[in-house]
Each structure stands twice: as C-alpha cells, then as structure tokens.
Design a protein around this nucleic acid. Structure first.
Length: 570
RNA sequence: GCGCCUGUAGCUCAGCUGGAUAGAGCAGCGGACUUCUAAUCCGCCGGUCGGGCGUUCGAAUCGCCCCAGGCGCGCCA
C-alpha cells in the first residue's frame, strides 16, 4: 500500500537530513517534533542529541546544518530557530496530495494492510447473565467494539467474542432465591428486573441467614453435576437474559461472531485440569487444586474448589486453548476491567507454563471502573444504573432538543436515537480508558462542547453543505485557494488520520481517535465560521467543497471506528 | 502489609512517549445568526502540572521516596 501524505513528507525530511546527520532513518523520524506555533514551521528537528558528538552547542549545530540543507519537493522552507531546524511544508504540493488521497480513498482512508492475513480475537462486553446490563458493562462493550473496528482498519480479520458470564456460583444463588421467593409469572413479565431483585434479595437475606450461601453452593454443585431441575432453571434464566441483552446490542448496533460463554467450556474443563496436572504444575492445597505461581511473584491460580466445582480461571484457560485451535489467532485481546488484572496475569502465566507458544500473544486491555455515588457500582447491593434507562433519557432529551432546534427534521426518532446513544458511547470513549469514572447524569446528558453530539453535529453540518451544493465533487480544483492558516490546519489534521488509527490500535486506546475527532471538529468549525463555502465564485466554491467533502469523510470514518452513527441531518 | 492503577485550571480531560510560552471543553462574564444547521464560533477569567529529591543541556513526561484516592491479593466473576 502506498505511503500516506504525511509519511511522504516525513520521508522527505529524513532524506534531507540523513545526508548531513549520522543517524538512521528511524532515529531521525523519532526526533522529529512539531513546533509550538504553525508560523515557525510544520516539523522541527532538535539538535540536542548531536551536541555531544559534535562538541558544539545545539544552537550552533542547528545554525550550521540549516545552511547546508536545501529544501526539496514537499519541503518549501528550512529555517533555524535556536537549537531547532524547522521545516515548512510546501502547501501548494501538500494540500493537493492530502486532499486527493482522502478523495480517492474515501471511506477506506486511514486503512492499511499491516494486518493482512492475520487474525485477532477480541473478547469483550461479556455481561453476566441474570444481572442487568449496567453502565459499567458499557465500557467493555464500546471499547472492545472500537478496538475490533480499529484492527479491521489495519487489515486484520477480527473475531468478536462475547464471553457471556453464564456459569458460576451466581446461578446457585439465583436458583436458591427463585426456589424460595420466585414466581414464574412475574419472571416472565419482566425477566431481568425480577432476576435482579431476586439476586439483591438473596444477598440481603444471606446477611441474616448463613445457611443460604450453603444452599446456593449446593445448587451450583447440582448444576455442574447436570441435575435436571437445576439445568432447566439455568437454561431459562440464560435465555431470557440473553434476549434482553440483545436489545441493547441492537441499539448499539454491535454484533459478535461468537456468544460462546463460560458454560460453553464446561465439557473441556476436566481435560484442561488433566493437562495442567500432567504438565506437573497442579497441586492440592487445603482441599483445592491450585497452580503455585510464587516463583513469579504472583498469588496461586485456583483451578478447582474444595467442593469439586470449578472456577472461572479454569474456564478462561480452557477457552484460550479452544479459541486458538478454532481461530489460530495472531493476537487475542481481553477487554475486561482493571480489577481483573491479577486474574489475567495468572491465566496467561499458566498457559505459558503449559508451553503454548501463543501465550505471549494474549493481552489484557484493562479499563477503569465506573463508580456511582460513594462507591463502586455493585449489583449485589442494588446500586446500579440501568443502561436502558440511560439510553432512554438520552434519546428523550435529544428529541426535545431537536424539537426546538430543527422541528422540521424527518426521521426524528431515529436521529434522536443515533445522537442520544452516540452521546453515551462517546462519553465512554473520549477519555483514556484507565481512568475511573464517576457516573454523572449531567455529564452523560451534556451535548455541548467536547461531546459525541458535537462531532455528529459537525458531520451533519458539512453534509448539509454538500447537499446544498448538489453537484459532483471533484478533486480537480485550484488548491492555491485553500492556503489560509485555518484551511492549512484542517488539511494537516486530515493528513494525520492514518497515523491516529494506527496509534489507537497499538495502544488499544479508542480515546486517541475521539480526541482527534474533537480537534478536527474544532478546526473545521472554525473554518466554517470564517469562510463561506458556497458562493458566486465558482473556483473558490469548488476548492472549498472538496475540503468539506474530505472533512465529512474523515469525521464519518472516525465516528464509525468509534461505533457511532453519523447522521446526515440533525 | 504487598502489588497494580490514577493524581495537570473550580469541574471533566488533552499534552504527539524528554524539548521552544502547559492546551481544550464545562461552569462564570462579554460578544457574533437578513447569508451554507448558533448542538457552532470569537474574547476574558482561571495552573507552585499532588509533594520532595534525583537523572539530564532541558522534566507534566524518566527514576526513587512520600501523600491522597481507587482496585486487587485462595475457594465470586
């Protein structure tokens, strides 16, 4: 695949510098920075590292070097400023290069083929059956979805797996609770609400009545033993929960290649345990089966409880092996909360001990917790915010705003959903994933400033301009009509998009794309407010329309990568 | 106690992996709609980058030590 415009420029600078400087291309590239203001130039090379070798001050070196360097092709000016050599790009060449690239690539702009022929598995969302889908689960869902989309941009085949929490002690609790207090009719009427209140009631009652916990463990044991009554209830709970989750995934327009949850691996667990034993790493301890990891400075990994039932570490180990055999992945990413860091360290280590060469292709992508009020959101305490309620309120508010700002809008309901849900999604993706977040209605429902609706609004606005223009957009324009600082700033930002996608994927950090989009919106809205795109002047109009087309395309692509909709009007 | 994460303006966050004067948004104040969507744009106000020591020509960024908050650390997931 051909180099992007930005790469061509940096390659050019490297070419110019490498004749005079004894550094290899990557060293030069790494040393390149951006001057504090655009007037100084587009790229800066600081001469600090050369100072030792040349036994001169960086300022003197910069001065001397600048005299010897001659601008070529994409570089128009090379100037010295203190210890820096500043390179100014030739706008006459750069602007057409960038805009023509965006124009010809369209929606595939920003894609590359580094991942061609490779497969990456992404384990994300993974809600617990029988628990309501809370705002906490949203993070894994939207971050994971975006990571999938990012890797697809890089050419990877991406398999999204929803590792449903459909097995474990919680089902023992749920069955026990249902047996005591549950009513079939109620459960059919509003499944997840009822399951949830049974779950909450269980924990409240268990405080007073110690025997409850024992009862729950017993039910889970019977479930694992495959007893009919237990299986029947489990299946039922699973089915009704899944149906509700599906509604949420439909709203978000997120789809999985596999819904193989924890229960899927039940039949493989005995074999997995045998494998660990055979490899000589398993040992009995206080009645449980563990893998001692002390020599790696990690607490032991529990494979089996003293009552014989299994634990989720075992299921994760079995799942990883199964997935490798099924997908032959080159990388597997787990998008799971930071509170499970240790768990994944343990699981990865055990797989490494078992001698799987792909163990180092496993990566846990953790994220900060969502807190509510005074503490962590806890399903047990009934301290959760339902995602559906969040969506509902966001969409309602959006409809109200549309009512006052754009009352004639067609498909109002649909747009309101796209924007309302977009606001929630963007809110979760716009800050670095490791930060804990305090849930706040105010922040969720703010549509001004650095928000999802702002990006969508900008997109809709430029769409509107193109609609009004109504003719075919072409890249055969007079580019010198786009040489204001505002336009140059936009062009420069557009040229950075491919690199932004790569960085976001490498760092598993969708927020890189989100913050980039905000920058692009700011620059583009500034341009919009200062220039009139459609005017009597045909030449200028054609040039600006091309720029608008490129802005719209990149914004649309960016929104798509974040898993958001890009409404043409709002 | 041990380990990991976070700490930048009143609030929410950027800061391109060590470089030039630390940037946005929200909130507050003041401006810009007879013209392509004002969910926008412009201006003002606002910072001992948690604290200290160190490495370096140069530190918000790297190292060490504290402080504060969060999360883990054997039968939950």
């Amino acid at each position: 695949m051909e180099n992007s415009a930005a790469e061509k420029v940096t390659d050019q600078i490297v070419d110019i510098l490498k004749q005079q400087v004894k550094l290899n291309p990557t060293q030069i590239r790494d040393a390149l920075g951006t001057p504090p203001t655009a007037e100084l130039g587009d790229y800066a090379f600081g001469c600090f590292t050369l100072a030792k070798e040349w036994r001169k001050s960086p300022t003197a070196i910069a001065q001397e070097l600048t005299k010897r360097l001659r601008p070529e092709s994409y570089i128009k000016k090379i100037e010295n400023a203190g210890p820096y050599i500043n390179f100014t790009v030739d706008r006459e060449k750069f602007t057409p290069l960038v805009l023509r690239e965006v124009f010809s690539r369209g929606d595939s702009y920003g894609n590359c083929d580094v991942g061609a022929g490779k497969t990456v598995v992404v384990d994300f969302s993974s809600p617990n059956i029988a628990k309501p889908f809370g705002v906490g689960h949203l993070r894994s869902t939207v971050i994971g979805n975006s990571i999938c989309r990012l890797y697809r941009c890089l050419g990877y085949t991406c398999i999204g797996i929803n590792h449903l929490g459909d097995w474990g002690t919680q089902f023992g609790k749920l069955i026990a609770a249902y047996k005591r207090w549950g009513k079939e009719g109620q459960l059919k009427a509003e499944p997840v609400r009822q399951l949830y209140s049974l779950y909450v009631k269980f924990h409240a009652e268990a405080q007073k009545e110690k025997s409850l916990e024992k009862e729950a463990r017993e039910w889970f044991r019977r479930l694992e033993a495959g007893e009919r009554e237990a299986i029947r209830l489990w299946r039922w709970f699973r089915e009704i929960s899944l149906k509700e989750f599906q509604r949420i995934y439909d709203i978000l327009d997120i789809h999985f290649d596999s819904y193989a949850g924890e229960s899927f691996y039940n039949s493989m667990l005995a074999e997995t345990i045998e494998e660990v034993k055979a490899a000589g790493f398993a040992q009995e301890s206080q009645g449980a089966l563990i893998v001692d990891l002390e020599r790696f400075g990690i607490p032991p990994c529990l494979l089996r409880k003293s009552d014989g039932s299994t634990l989720y570490a075992t299921r994760d180990i079995a799942a990883a092996i199964y997935r490798f055999n099924t997908y032959r992945f080159d990388k597997m990413i787990y998008v799971v909360g930071a509170d499970q860091r240790l768990h994944f360290q343990q699981v990865f280590k055990v797989l490494e001990l078992l001698g799987y060469p792909w163990a180092d292709a496993l990566v846990h992508v953790p994220f900060g917790l969502v807190r509510f009020g005074n503490g962590k959101m806890s399903t047990r305490k009934g301290n959760v915010v339902f995602l559906e309620e969040v969506f509902q309120r966001a969409v309602e508010l959006t409809e109200k705003i549309i009512e006052e700002k754009n009352p004639e809008l067609q498909d109002r309901r649909e747009v309101a959903t796209q924007v309302g849900v977009g606001a929630i999604v963007f809110n979760d993706l716009s800050t670095k994933r490791m930060k804990d977040v305090d849930f706040s209605w105010d922040r969720m429902l703010n549509f001004n400033g650095q928000t999802g609706p702002y990006v969508q609004y900008t997109y809709a606005r430029f769409s509107s301009v193109l609609r009004k223009y109504g003719r075919q957009v072409e890249d055969n324009v007079n580019f010198s009509l786009l040489n204001s600082t505002m336009e140059t700033r936009v062009v420069k930002l557009l040229s950075r998009f491919p690199e932004v996608v790569k960085r976001a994927a490498n760092e598993y950090e969708p927020s890189v794309v989100a913050t980039y989009l905000l920058d692009l919106c700011e620059a583009s809205n500034q341009f919009y407010n200062h220039f009139r795109v459609l005017s009597e002047d045909l030449e200028t109009t054609k040039a600006r329309v091309l720029l608008v087309w490129c802005i719209k395309t990149v914004l649309g692509k960016g929104l798509k990568v974040l898993g958001m909709k890009a409404p043409e009007r709002m």
